[in-house]
């Protein structure tokens, strides 16, 4: 397999698999609650229905409102292409490192936030304010976790990180702390319980849903697909750093195929774990977000401190 072909596969497959992952999470959650739940393919049908429908726009909606779903999706898609999912080589992903990925996700957030305030409804405003609060709290934790990881592997590029961790770096408590921090940040960023409930339309608790309440038709479809892709992105990110086994290092067809199967398996395990976790925990009050994300920040700071000690002394 040649690199350009691999790049295309790396771009298309995650976007194609993302609705299936969301369907899996919904299905498992429903089964855990004693319901049969919708079919695994339901998100695809929802997206197809939304793509067929005509978008309804507010009279005062600007070009920003219309462009934001596409811009945010494009930023997320680009970030996704830089993550070694099933195959990894230095030329893939345009050389984007973890800081660039965090920046692209930030760009997507800014675009959605601006669009949320564009029409001027109070719901968009409240959702935006909460989303930006979460972002402001989550990003420092994410960056310090990146620094802690970079101290271990001496690189911020994901292919290097995944390779070094695959070769093994010994028993590191900092890795566990960084994993804790990144998982907590991922839960906040993808809008899962306990931070946000993706299934609710109750005014008091909505965050992401409130921000995109004004969207309809194909715009809403892009927003929804973007949210699904973001979930896939974070799960793949966690998998490629902390479970780096089975990622194809050479471009031969058999390695890529087994890497693909393993990656799908990792996503499924992550999705089931997420569903179980969400079923067992209650949504957090908005005023407790700083504590939750403060704990994530604390984990990453502690990880960096422990690394400082153990590396500084050697």
């Amino acid at each position: 397999m040649t690199d350009p072909l691999l790049l295309v596969v790396q771009l298309v497959v995650p976007a194609a698999v993302a609705p299936l992952l969301t369907g899996l999470v919904r299905k498992v959650k429903a089964r855990l609650l004693g319901r049969r739940g919708p079919s695994l393919l339901q998100p695809y049908r929802d997206l197809a229905r939304l793509f067929r429908k005509e978008p309804v726009l507010a009279e005062n909606a600007s070009w920003l409102f219309r462009g934001a779903p596409y811009g945010a999706f494009a930023a997320m898609w680009l970030a996704m292409s830089a993550i070694p999912t099933f195959a990894s080589s230095p030329t893939l992903g345009l050389g984007l490192d973890m800081i660039a990925i965090a920046g692209l996700l930030g760009l997507a957030r800014i675009l959605t936030a601006l669009a949320g305030m564009d029409v001027g409804t109070s719901f968009g405003g409240i959702g935006t304010s909460r989303e930006i609060t979460i972002g402001a709290l989550a990003e420092p934790a994410m960056f310090i976790a990146i620094i802690a990881l970079a101290l271990i592997v001496n690189s911020t590029a994901l292919p290097d990180m995944s390779r070094v961790l695959h070769e093994g770096v010994g028993l590191r408590v900092s890795l566990a702390l960084a994993l804790g921090a990144i998982v907590m940040v991922a839960m906040a960023e993808t809008g899962r319980i306990p931070i946000d409930n993706p299934a609710t339309h109750l005014e008091l608790t909505m965050v992401h849903e409130a921000m995109v309440l004004e969207y309809s038709g194909r715009h809403l479809a892009m927003v929804e697909l973007g949210a699904m892709l973001k979930l896939t992105l974070y799960l793949s990110l966690i998998a490629c750093i902390f479970v780096p086994w089975g990622i194809a290092r050479e471009a031969d067809a058999q390695a890529v195929a087994s890497g693909l199967a393993l990656w799908l398996g990792k996503l499924a395990v992550g999705g089931v774990a997420l569903a179980v976790f969400e079923t067992t925990i209650a949504k957090m009050r908005v005023f407790r977000y700083p504590e939750f994300l403060g704990a994530a920040l604390l984990f990453s700071v502690l990880g960096a401190i422990f690394l400082y000690i153990s590396q500084h002394l050697k």
Partner: peptide
């Protein structure tokens, strides 16, 4: 050493 480091750090965590 790694295990000792792990346990010490765990106490602090």
């Amino acid at each position: 050493f790694d295990i000792a480091h792990l346990l010490g750090a765990l106490v602090l965590t």
